[in-house]
């Protein structure tokens, strides 16, 4: 499923079906990005993203590409807000054995392991924050270099450099892991 320019135009003019299509196409990608980044409540954050984006549709510029950039800009900002909130007020909960990942893996970790992506998540977590953001937005958000630069507020050259270093680091990490 891909967003067409006419669908975006219809969504801008308030067409209910077109707005629903925008949500159906982009919400899974946003959810995947937030999951990959380790958001605490990726579904809730995804809802917040679209609650912020849909009222802004009438003033949207740039067609489908502009909409994709806007959606992931809001998603990334919400994720950064959550990280800062967590840093300010760490949540303290009572110990519950069933959620102790040292003995029992969580449902999410189990699902990821089943998909065979646990190792990649582990490797990605070793990258720098900006390198992870670039790789996540490019692979999960299907954003171009320019769109990623807009979302992160950097130049295209800086994004190019970040993704190159990220790929090089990933390769090095994989080589080190296989060498053990």
């Amino acid at each position: 499923m891909e967003l067409t320019e006419s669908t975006v135009e219809d969504a801008k003019s308030g067409n209910r079906d077109a707005v629903g299509m925008v949500y159906r196409v982009l919400a899974p990608k946003v959810l995947g990005y937030l999951r990959a980044r380790g958001a605490e409540d990726p579904e809730g954050l995804t809802n917040e993203v679209f609650l912020a984006v849909i009222p802004r549709l009438p003033s949207l510029e740039g067609g489908a590409a502009g909409l994709r950039t806007l959606v992931f800009s809001v998603a990334h900002a919400r994720y950064v807000d959550e990280i800062r909130r967590r840093a300010r007020r760490p949540v303290q909960t009572a110990y519950e054995q069933e959620y102790d990942e040292r003995t029992t893996p969580s449902a999410e970790v189990t699902a990821i392991e089943q998909n065979g992506s646990a190792q990649v998540f582990g490797l990605l977590s070793l990258l720098g924050e900006e390198q992870r953001s670039v790789i996540g937005l490019r692979i999960l958000g299907d954003l171009s270099l320019e769109q990623t630069a807009q979302v992160l507020g950097k130049t295209t050259g800086a994004i190019k450099q970040l993704q190159r270093r990220g790929l090089e680091n990933l390769r090095q990490l994989m080589t080190d892991r296989d060498g053990r």
Binding site: A36, P42, G44, L51, I139
Partner: peptide, 29 residues
């Protein structure tokens, strides 16, 4: 390895909250 990352993208969107559902039903404000 990076291709496996894409498996975390679900096929269906998450269930919208009541507020978002109302917004989606009403269309663009």
């Amino acid at each position: 390895a990076l291709a496996t990352l894409r498996s975390v993208v679900p096929a269906d969107p998450p269930t919208p909250s009541a507020e978002l559902a109302a917004l989606l039903t009403a269309g663009t404000v």
